[in-house]
Design a protein around this nucleic acid. Sequence first.
RNA 1: GCGGUCGUGGCGAAGUGGUUAACGCACCGGAUUGUGGUUCCGGCAUACGUGGGUUCGAUCCCCACCGGUCGCCCCA
Length: 425
Amino acid sequence: MNIKGPRGTQDILPGNSEQWQYVESTLMELCKRYNYKEIRTPIFEQTELFQRSVGDTTDIVQKEMYTFTDRGDRSLTLRPEGTASVVRSFVQNKVFGQPSQPTKYFYIGPMFRYERPQQGRMRQFYQFGIEALGSADPAIDAEVLALALNSYQELGLKSLKLVINSLGDNESRQQHREALIAHFAPYRTELCQDCQTRLDKNPLRVLDCKKDRDHPAMESAPSVLDYLNDYSRNYFNKVKVYLDTMGIDYVVDKNLVRGLDYYNHTAFEIMSDAEGFGAITTLSGGGRYNGLVEEMGGPETPGIGFAMSIERLLMALEAEGIQLPIDDTLDCYFVAMGDEAKTETVRLAYLLRKNGIQVDKDYLDRKLKAQFKSADRLKAKYVIVLGEQELAENKANVKKMTTGEQIEVSLDELVSYLKKELGGK
RNA sequence: GCGGUCGUGGCGAAGUGGUUAACGCACCGGAUUGUGGUUCCGGCAUACGUGGGUUCGAUCCCCACCGGUCGCCCCA
């Protein structure tokens, strides 16, 4: 067979899948503490959903979407991010009308972007994210940032940097936009090709251009923060106060601009400082998106959320040398000699498993010694040896692998003996 | 989409324009015919990414493509 998995995809095999499970369950447990509930939406949606929410001029929509036509000539797209679907679902299911607001969701699942793969960037990648819909209280912004940061801390990461900014509301943004165009217009031809188009379509994005980073006009560029109206400035200040209250460190970066169109007010990213982390340091990003629900046909509803890449989270763990506490041991392994004993281990294995004990056994008809080798490799805590002698006496030899000690246990007492030995099982 | 680099067995890794393509790990067996993780001995495998071209002959030279990897753009 020489069919390979599609470019930019990966198989997560045992040896790695345990880490994924550990990370995912840790994140879910954390969500429980913050009272965010899981939402599962389809992994494909009508293409229009992303065009309208993420924005036509964004890189995601312009060159990174996995779009295809189905047999009914509908244009569908593999979701490039999670917020659009969540908002669509919120509106479609009229969740806004339900009693307990705000609505607090989390999701974990694959996202798809058609890009050239490299470290920390896959065509199919996994995101964990949360969305809080229905509240314009800056305290919930702070809650979202706290949860984002906690997600990493919970797994032991230390080298983290929280960067925040405010993009302001529509009025503030409009004024800032005009100021930006006026500011950069005289230098237009000195800017890179991309920035020249950005200047027309989305001047905000000029600010985070890496090519023109050192252009003198950058330093003197009008800051979003200077154009915030009273409401926006006040809102941002409160977010910062709440962060301070929780003792959360952050840096304000006035050039932090998010790549998607729907953001306003609070915008943030969490980056890794870790040594040897590679070119990509952004672990997660998010922000407020008041207006998006309305844009999707729902009532005026504020919202905020963030998303993180599980792949990058795992990279960060590795960069910081953090070993997750994963138990890869096996409770017990059956070693059988002879047909009768083999039949008996089939029965006993089933019995033990039904009693909550992890069991495996030989299926390759190997020699005793080789069976022990397998048990060792599988990190079995106990090996249960059954041969003709034992069978005749209705007993089994139970060997504790860590110490090498071995005792005879009556088959009738095997379950209770092992339960006791394994403790609490 | 652009650029650098790489592509030999399950994994890691030598190597050459020409009979059987090293080695290490892993795996299997034996030494110890009912006991593991050490040691010793032996064995094993549809391996030169794909397709063309040059050549008497290509794993090795050339081209294209595919894929990995790193970087750019941008992001998670």
